[in-house]
């Protein structure tokens, strides 16, 4: 039991640091272009996540289309019907625990919705929204 308890603490700590490391890396990247940059913004992130665009497939989509508006609930891939587990780390602890995975999905999904990759600013903002949304 004790072991499980310590394991949970370690997992918890490592979750925080992976995401913190990634966000501070993005922060530095934005700051190098814009020295007066103050930090990532929930509201800007919300707009990125919820606004509708003509996606890679030619259909009008937003991140919400597949991930659901309630990030603590399952989503559903609108093209394949496959269930997507909750995006919010508040409901799904495995989210944002692996930098390679975070980068892979940001690249793929920005391409799917915006037909281009996201900038460091956009990535930081949208993550701030996803992890902060209640």
């Amino acid at each position: 039991m004790k072991t499980i308890f310590y394991l949970l603490i370690v997992v918890n700590l490592s979750f925080g640091s992976v995401l913190d490391d990634y966000l501070s890396k993005l922060h530095k990247e934005v700051q190098s272009q814009n020295p007066t940059f103050e930090g990532f913004d929930f509201k800007r992130g919300e707009k990125i996540f919820t606004s509708v665009h003509k996606g890679k497939k030619g259909e009008m989509v937003s991140c919400v289309t597949c991930h659901n508006n309630d990030l603590k609930q399952n989503g559903k891939n609108t093209f394949t019907g496959k269930i997507i587990e909750p995006l919010s780390p508040k409901a799904n602890q495995s989210r944002f625990t692996d930098i390679a995975k975070i980068e892979k999905w940001l690249k793929r999904n920005f391409n799917d919705v915006y037909v281009r990759e996201g900038t460091a600013l956009e990535k930081g903002d949208v993550i701030t929204y996803i992890i902060g949304k209640e």
Binding site: G58, F79, K104, K107, R108, N109, N111, D112
Partner: peptide, 12 residues
């Protein structure tokens, strides 16, 4: 894989 049935499924 970058254009995988209309979505980006690229891998490292």
């Amino acid at each position: 894989l970058e254009n995988h049935f209309g979505t980006d499924a690229s891998l490292n």
